[in-house]
Design a protein around this nucleic acid. Sequence first.
DNA 1: GATGAATGAGTGTTCATTCAT
DNA 2: TATGAATGAACACTCATTCAT
Lengths: 206, 206, 206, 206
Amino acid sequence: MAEGRTKEKILDISLELFSQKGYSAVSIRDICRLVPIKESTLYYYFQNKREIFQVLKERFEERAGALMRRLEKELAVKAAPCQGPGFGEGATQAFFEEYLLDPFCNSFLRLLRMEQGGDMVVREAYDQWMFEKPLRFQEKVFSLLMEQGILPQADSEMLAMQYYSPIFLCFERYLTGGELTEEKKERFRQEAGRQITVFFRDRGLM
Amino acid sequence: MAEGRTKEKILDISLELFSQKGYSAVSIRDICRLVPIKESTLYYYFQNKREIFQVLKERFEERAGALMRRLEKELAVKAAPCQGPGFGEGATQAFFEEYLLDPFCNSFLRLLRMEQGGDMVVREAYDQWMFEKPLRFQEKVFSLLMEQGILPQADSEMLAMQYYSPIFLCFERYLTGGELTEEKKERFRQEAGRQITVFFRDRGLM
Amino acid sequence: MAEGRTKEKILDISLELFSQKGYSAVSIRDICRLVPIKESTLYYYFQNKREIFQVLKERFEERAGALMRRLEKELAVKAAPCQGPGFGEGATQAFFEEYLLDPFCNSFLRLLRMEQGGDMVVREAYDQWMFEKPLRFQEKVFSLLMEQGILPQADSEMLAMQYYSPIFLCFERYLTGGELTEEKKERFRQEAGRQITVFFRDRGLM
Amino acid sequence: MAEGRTKEKILDISLELFSQKGYSAVSIRDICRLVPIKESTLYYYFQNKREIFQVLKERFEERAGALMRRLEKELAVKAAPCQGPGFGEGATQAFFEEYLLDPFCNSFLRLLRMEQGGDMVVREAYDQWMFEKPLRFQEKVFSLLMEQGILPQADSEMLAMQYYSPIFLCFERYLTGGELTEEKKERFRQEAGRQITVFFRDRGLM
DNA sequence: GATGAATGAGTGTTCATTCAT
DNA sequence: TATGAATGAACACTCATTCAT
């Protein structure tokens, strides 16, 4: 069999199941039935069930971390010449499409979200990737917009909350239950998009 | 043992455990160990594990429904004579203290939140009690405030989102993991309170 | 079912199997097949496999401890009036029939003997019950015999070794493998008996 | 890798583990982890787990057989001219150092000792190498000593038991649990040595 | 010589649930 | 009201072993 194929398939299926039913509600048997392999084969690739989660977590953090770094870099570049409020849009779109709506990231965020009954480390990861990092990033965006006089001076932390919290609410409401269908994604884009539009309009932009 | 005592204790302990570790991560054994009764005794009071959840759900809906109805009634009464924006405060405080921060309601909301991997009915309940009802209620509040000229005319639905989403974010961030300590409650009150204050100040009130 | 029957049967069968094949070579399934019960039933009576061993150990120590105490008491009583070397015989016979040859004690000693690869506590128990206690007891017997002038003065510790070690060798050789048949028991009685006879004859007694 | 290297290492590590934890408590994984090789590699050298034991057994029997033959030959040679009781000493020392205390032989004897729950052939091997052969050899020694008038006429079989059983007890007590440390070896040498000294002194020698 | 990939049978253990008492 | 006794199905995980490469 082609190298790495099986391991990848285990990870794919595991994430899919975990994000739908929750880590502890998914059995090794469930995973193996769908791969499909024998349970003993799974243990050739992973030491135990927890390790599947760990590997998924590492991959998520790599990927999400790379996205965050990229967005910050783009922010710095674009900010140089005054470009109007538009440059925030790119970031938001990337944040939507490559993070909240991206199948892998979306699934993992859902998994984190459900498993908060478990250990602290999961709770902390969820706090980081769902709250801390997005809010910190948005603060920087608004600070820049204010520096350039595009937005009136204000508390950037508060602004980040006002901008991000409706997005978060829409994420929770439309993107964390059942399968991630194109329908749900579209609904999210519209609802969250409306909130963003109004946010900028209220502040005299766009 | 006094009638009803045991059943209540089963419900109390079940909710406590469910809200901390999630429905499926809590075993009948776990519950009975803490009551304490034998497993077979539990089945004298409940047909199966799911029924414990059902009873909790009914009680929650009774209680939360009563609260919502009460708030709506108070809204109608208070609204009659013009009383300034203050009359919204009472509702918000009651929503905080008797709903999001109330041990029973908080626990059940956490339980709903975690079990969305399960069946649709749970998802719908969560949507109702976490999004639909609070947002609908807030819309009415703002409609009234606008009718009375206290708030400038605007899209009340949008306003409700802008008002409620930071509260929801704070709820998710501070009130859904680990035990519900007084510390966490206070933190929530402050963070969510700040958001509300700014919301009204931005709109020329308070 | 009659009270206590099942638990006792589990213990009986477990000891039998453990003493034949060794603790770790016996599976819960093996035990349950012979009882016969379902595996889940076994866990109604015992928390885990180790607890079966623990209970057997407690029972053995109670029983063997009682025997040792009884023999010591009889020694003190009988020693009072001079009765010739005969009084040692009773002790040896009890030690043979109620300890080394007793089905329960024999099985447990075999179990201890085999499981020395495991934890220290098992090793120590084996050392106590196979070496320390028998040798200490025999020392007391010889001290008494010397006090009464029946045996000439000598190092009682050395004497105990000279008396006990052939018995121990016969035990190891004839009583620790396969089933404990009446044939094997008889062979042990004869071989060990001959050693004892010669021991006393060499020292001018009997 | 140099030919034979890997196979030897598998045998060394297997014996070490077997003698510490027992044959069935050691997994192929355990062995391979320490060699270190992949499990499939082990099956290049051995058909199955049992074969590792078989090879070890053959080597043990070769080695122990050679030792026994050598001791018997030395006995015949030395016995010719009258040399006093000393010629027994050499045999005993060799029996200690090259058999009971020799790392390879000691490990294998421990392995045999633990695995008596298994098949008859193992039990028989244990009986041969732990009881039959040592006792037969000792009988010959004493027969010779008696022929030469060094020891008074007596039942050589009984004498062999009296001589060997304390040694066997010390072996069981001090050399069959945990690792074979220099400390344990020394303790054995002293305890067993004392027994031998007293044995000869009691019979007017040394 | 050595390995990567796979497996069937088995391990100890936990689960929600039943039912006669 | 409450329990003692039992169970079938599932659980995560380990075992010795195979075989194509």
